[in-house]
């Protein structure tokens, strides 16, 4: 569960609020698109959710953690409940595709046996079988993206966040990735999914909840797709 209640945040050294008295809630098991122009604060919302930056005021709760009062030592526990697919993938360059996914399981203390069973399964799920031994620079942009997806879902997080995951993909691949996210959302664990995107077509081809933001504020929130945001 994600709860923003009147949250404001200014970057250190920034002159304006990147997030300005923002309120919205995402329930467990929901699938939400987050849309908005460049610089509107989408990535900032993700950084707030993962505890990478702190809110200046308001109330912020994620998966049962009170992020306004969380101690630094508790951040790893929070982050293990969240899987993030970053705008720029953020893969570790000198680890193979396999290790990039496996190390996320080592982080949470999974046993070697679990890892050997789970990683190939997840890599297969995102269509990366046969690429295990390659390094990130030796696979295509779309494949790197899917490594990032595999890493984000390998620990079965409660909340899956994707920041512009389709930025580098052709429309067919984008749709495929969205269907994969939808499947992850639909699974028996009911993973909550938050997808940041610019792609109108894509958003409109799914009838999901769309939260639109501009200048750090929510300007529309509903099931009626991307268009309502454009009208504003």
């Amino acid at each position: 569960m994600v709860l923003f209640d009147n949250v404001s945040m200014t970057y250190p050294g920034g002159d304006m609020r990147a997030i300005d008295e923002m309120s919205f809630a995402i329930d467990d098991g929901e699938f939400v698109f987050l849309v908005g122009p460049s610089g509107s604060g989408k990535t900032s919302i993700i950084k707030l959710i993962t505890g990478e930056v702190r809110a200046d005021s308001g109330e912020l709760n994620v998966n049962g953690f009170d992020l306004r009062r969380i101690r630094r030592g508790k951040l790893p526990a929070l982050r293990r409940t969240i899987g993030v697919i970053f705008q720029d993938f953020r893969l570790i360059e000198d680890m193979t595709v396999y290790d990039n996914v496996a190390f996320a399981m080592h982080v949470v203390g999974a046993s070697n046996r679990e890892i050997r069973r789970r990683v190939p399964y997840v890599l297969d799920l995102v269509g990366l079988s046969g690429r295990e031994k390659r390094f990130p620079r030796e696979v295509s942009g779309g494949e790197q993206q899917r490594v990032a997806v595999a890493r984000a879902i390998v620990n079965s997080p409660q909340l899956l966040i994707a920041d512009e995951p389709t930025g580098n993909l052709d429309p067919a691949r984008s749709l495929e990735l969205m269907l994969l996210m939808d499947r992850i959302n639909d699974n028996e664990m009911g993973t909550t999914v938050l997808v940041v995107t610019h792609e109108k077509e894509l958003v409109n081809s799914f009838s999901k909840r769309v939260v639109a933001i501009e200048d750090g504020r929510v300007i529309s929130d509903g099931m009626d797709g991307y268009y309502s945001y454009e009208i504003q």
């Binding site: 993962t50 990478e52 951040l75 790893p76 526990a77 929070l78 982050r79 293990r80 969240i82 993030v84 970053f86 953020r90 893969l91 570790i92 360059e93 000198d94 190390f103 996320a104 080592h106 982080v107 949470v108 890493r151």
Partner: peptide, 15 residues
Amino acid sequence: EEIAIMKMVGASNWF
């Protein structure tokens, strides 16, 4: 960058 990624995945400082 590598350290930042590890932290984002939930690695403790000791890890």
